[in-house]
Design a protein around this nucleic acid. Structure first.
Lengths: 117, 117
DNA sequence: TCTCGTACCGAAAATTTTTTCGGTATACCC
DNA sequence: GGGTATACCGAAAAAATTTTCGGTACGAGA
């Protein structure tokens, strides 16, 4: 069984929040789940750059932290769905603020780091 | 010379923002610089859990990304100061939102992961 | 002189994260 | 049977991050 290496940081509110969302795909996962629950395969289609494995690992931590809920349907082929909990949804304003900041400064970084320098 | 391994993510506004602040101490550094410029040694005193080396490395990326400005004073012993740029300061509302979220949910995670489990 | 402090940086080690590859099991369709 | 697909997970490899350790250089003070 996978176990997270670094526990959630309880000492500082800023690092507590960061430690919940600062891995490569967690914020994207929360963003994708904002409208409706998604199955793992659907999530992978939405985030094709992320491997199914890493989505699985990060979903597990999100569930452990209480930001995402997992529902297993006793069907064959197996089906499961991941959805935002109330706690996870309470992070959406933060996600929105990050998206907004990124949008308003995208051109700056595009010029800075983009293909045409 | 140090070179960042992963370039800033230009494809998605959310990951662009995250890629600027998602290493271990960057958000804390921005938070510490909010009131006044700090010298590296002062910053280390404010964040004693971070090694001077990692603060140095992350400051360098923050400067490269334009979030922090470095001023070198031609004195002996050498003195330098790091301060927020306008761009860096524009992230403070985001930092504030993360601090606020962390504060309002600290007790929950304290119960969940704290010493008395 | 010796020690402390400043700022900085290289190199290697250690740690953490992510990827890759393979495997479990089931059902569907051709 | 052989192909698709679903979800999940272990193990090892690869990659990235952070730590540790050492070093540069200079001045202040005991």
């Amino acid at each position: 069984m996978y176990e997270r290496k670094i526990p959630v940081d309880l000492d500082c509110p800023l690092r507590l929040t960061m430690s919940l969302i600062d891995s490569k795909w967690k914020s994207c996962i929360l963003d994708e789940l904002r409208h409706r629950p998604l199955r793992p395969s659907e999530l992978h289609r939405q985030l094709p750059e992320a491997t199914p494995r890493v989505l699985d690992l990060q979903l597990r931590e999100l569930v452990e932290d209480g930001l995402v809920a997992k529902t297993i349907y006793a069907e064959l082929p197996p089906r499961s769905e991941y959805s935002l909990t109330e706690l996870g949804a309470s992070l959406l304003p933060l996600i929105d603020a990050m998206i907004a900041w990124g949008q308003s400064h995208a051109d700056l970084f595009e010029r800075k780091y983009g293909p045409r320098g």
